[in-house]
Amino acid sequence: MLVVLDAPYIDTRAADLSLALDSPERPALHVRELALPGGVRLRLRLLGASHQVVCGDVTETVACLPGHPPHLPRTLHDESVGYRFTATVLRPDGDGLRTRVAALRAELADDPYALVGVFPGDADAITALSVRPDPPDGSVAWRTWHAYPQTNELVLTETVVAR
């Protein structure tokens, strides 16, 4: 699902992002509720140029978080809740960011398990979330993309939560 957001682009660059688990739900620009095979329910939440995913007892927030020093770990594993997270920051050459964002928009626009938020003023300023509806191991998995055209950065995250 592709949504054009009526909100200012808040986050400024990848280095400003933090990861928080189990923080309260923050005000959202758009929410998409999903029911996955096996009875799993998720809420995909767009927050400015950030995201929040609520999956059972896990609430993942990747955003500029007041009171949190900016830090987006490359990996985080919390076996107590079966949570695995990875993050990568890409700085594509030339028109690489524009090409990647256009491909994401095309791929995810009609995906029933995706949400793409496009911010006003720059078609490349997006936050996208995509859930894998039925991973082979029975876990719940999602990927996100945060595009920062002003700094030519694309933040990719991947999360897996064991069920």
Rank of each mutant, 00 (worst) to 15 (best):
V4W: 08
D6Y: 10
A7C: 14
P8V: 11
I10C: 10
R13T: 10
R13I: 03
R13H: 15
A14V: 06
D16Y: 12
L17H: 07
L19Q: 04
A20V: 05
A20G: 12
A20T: 09
L21R: 06
L21W: 08
E25C: 13
P27C: 07
A28P: 00
L29V: 09
L29C: 14
L29M: 08
H30F: 09
A35W: 07
A35I: 09
A35M: 15
L36R: 11
P37Y: 01
G38S: 09
G39N: 11
G39E: 13
V40M: 08
R43G: 04
L44M: 03
L47K: 02
S50W: 05
S50H: 03
H51M: 00
V53I: 04
D57G: 15
D57H: 15
D57E: 15
V58A: 08
T59E: 01
E60F: 03
E60Y: 03
T61S: 05
V62E: 06
A63Y: 04
C64V: 13
C64R: 14
L65W: 09
P66I: 11
P70K: 12
H71V: 06
L76Y: 05
H77W: 03
D78T: 01
D78Y: 06
S80P: 12
V81H: 05
G82I: 02
T86I: 08
T86W: 10
A87Q: 10
A87E: 13
A87F: 11
T88L: 14
V89Q: 10
L90Y: 15
L90I: 05
L90F: 14
R91K: 13
P92M: 03
P92H: 00
D95I: 11
G96Q: 05
L97Y: 11
L97C: 07
R98G: 06
V101E: 05
V101D: 04
V101I: 02
A102D: 12
L104V: 00
L104F: 05
E107W: 09
E107P: 01
A109N: 04
A109W: 12
D110Y: 11
D111S: 13
D111N: 12
A114V: 03
V116P: 00
V116T: 09
V118Y: 01
P120W: 07
D122K: 02
A123W: 01
D124T: 03
I126T: 01
S130V: 13
V131N: 01
R132M: 12
R132D: 15
P133G: 07
P133T: 05
D137R: 10
G138V: 13
G138A: 12
S139H: 11
V140T: 12
A141P: 02
A141H: 02
T144G: 14
T144R: 10
H146V: 00
H146N: 09
H146Q: 10
H146S: 04
T151C: 10
V155G: 01
L156M: 05
T159L: 09
T159I: 15
V160S: 07
V161G: 01
A162R: 15
A162C: 09
R163I: 02
R163K: 13
